[in-house]
Amino acid sequence: METTSEKTDRAIVLSPSGRLDFSAAAPFQEAIEKTIAEAAGAKLAVILDCSGLDYLSSAGLRCFLIGARTAQAAGARLIVCSLQKAVSEVFDVSGFSRIMPPVADRAAAVAAL
């Protein structure tokens, strides 16, 4: 899995791509926490653009959950967007769609800020 980061004037966009499974969870969690700290310091939001993410297991969901809590504690907005079908199904089944409602695409994420 690869994660790229991009800064815009209102948010830092973190884009994981590939498979977020148990093996990829620890480095991704580190990336997400680092990004939230940086965003909170700069009064920016965090957008998790999942358009390139094609696999997600419970180990990956744990990263999203910890990320959402870290963002809440730091006072930073965190928005998830562009879920592929399989990832979207995992979000729905696990109830994550309710605790961090995903939006359709990056434009919708920016509009929601």
Binding site: S57, S58, R62, L65, I66, R69, Q72, V90, I99
Partner: peptide
């Protein structure tokens, strides 16, 4: 809600 979600236990549920 977010604050009360347990971190583990989701795997077998999925």
């Amino acid at each position: 809600p977010l604050e009360e979600r347990p971190i583990g236990g989701l795997g077998i549920y999925l």
